[in-house]
């Protein structure tokens, strides 16, 4: 059809027609991505009765913040949010610290069995979490870490992916810079802190953003390791809401909205880092 129409126009016009068609297809795809979110946010302002009404309403007939208030007051979503911030921040900082140090050592030092160690760390990426989850749970409970921040953070604080990414990146830093510092008598720590870290900012920020997102969105481990509601993370809070108040569609949708808003805000401000992070890892594989 498109070709049929375009034969009557000059070559230039033909490409322009296809540009319009591709643009329309792209808009359709983008809409299919955004509409569920719009639907979620609009519905989070609807009342409990309006949300299950037939026929459905797209815009809320009456804007109400009652559900938000209920979740924050009665169900402690504020506390869940705080827990998520604490756990995700701590996990991210620890992953950044361990990954940059290990990446530095693997990129810039020579020692025996280096590649074997590295391969061992890499191969751990393959092991599904479900394979170790039960022994890990038993271990953490023997340590007395059930329902603690330590239990939520420590088993997640080293990332093979992070070590791999930082090594890849740091190998690109010229040795001459390190040698110059060494001749001046700089220690390993000084070089790490003053030379390597400032030059690895782009990789580190990509890794940081991914670790944070991953930790924020994690459900399996917080589900295992927390017992009391006060220790729940936001993501677990939303899942629990679904399990306990499944028929209260207004509550679960508002819960999902609360959990999603911070992620979208971070994404909107740092989307370059998100996308750069993915391409850094994907292409240097």
């Amino acid at each position: 059809m498109g070709f049929f129409l375009s034969t009557k126009i000059a070559h230039n016009g033909k490409t322009r027609l296809w540009d319009v068609i591709w643009q329309l297809v792209a808009i359709l795809i983008s809409l299919s991505m955004v509409i569920p979110f719009l639907w979620m946010f609009l519905s989070s302002f609807k009342s409990a009765t309006e949300i299950i009404q037939i026929p459905l309403t797209f815009f809320p007939r009456k804007f109400t913040l009652a559900t938000y208030q209920e979740l924050l007051d009665k169900l402690d979503f504020g506390r869940y949010f705080l827990n998520s911030v604490i756990v995700s921040t701590a996990t991210t900082l620890l992953i950044l610290f361990t990954s940059s140090l290990a990446g530095f050592v693997f990129a810039k030092y020579r020692f025996r069995w280096k590649e074997v160690y590295f391969l061992l760390i890499l191969s751990s990426m393959m092991i599904p979490f479900a394979v170790i989850v039960i022994p890990l749970y038993m271990l953490v409970s023997n340590l007395g870490w059930i329902d603690t921040y330590a239990g939520l953070i420590v088993p997640m604080c080293v990332s093979a992916f992070g070590i791999f990414l930082m090594r890849q990146f740091m190998e690109g830093i010229p040795d001459a810079l390190l040698e110059a510092a060494r001749i001046d008598g700089a220690s390993d720590w000084w070089i790490y802190y003053r030379v390597i870290l400032p030059l690895s900012k782009s990789a580190a920020s990509a890794l940081g953003i991914f670790s944070f997102m991953w930790s924020w969105n994690n459900l399996f481990w917080p589900l295992m390791v927390t017992m009391s509601p006060e220790m729940r993370t936001l993501t677990l809070g939303v899942a629990t809401l679904q399990w306990e108040y499944g028929v209260r569609y207004d509550a679960v949708i508002t819960g999902a909205a609360i959990a999603t808003i911070p992620v979208i805000i971070v994404y909107a401000f740092a989307r370059r880092n998100f996308i750069q992070g993915l391409t850094l890892t994907g292409l240097k594989y």
Partner: peptide
């Protein structure tokens, strides 16, 4: 970038 749990609820 969003949590699987949140999108599953949705």
């Amino acid at each position: 970038v969003c949590a699987v749990a949140a999108m599953s609820v949705l």
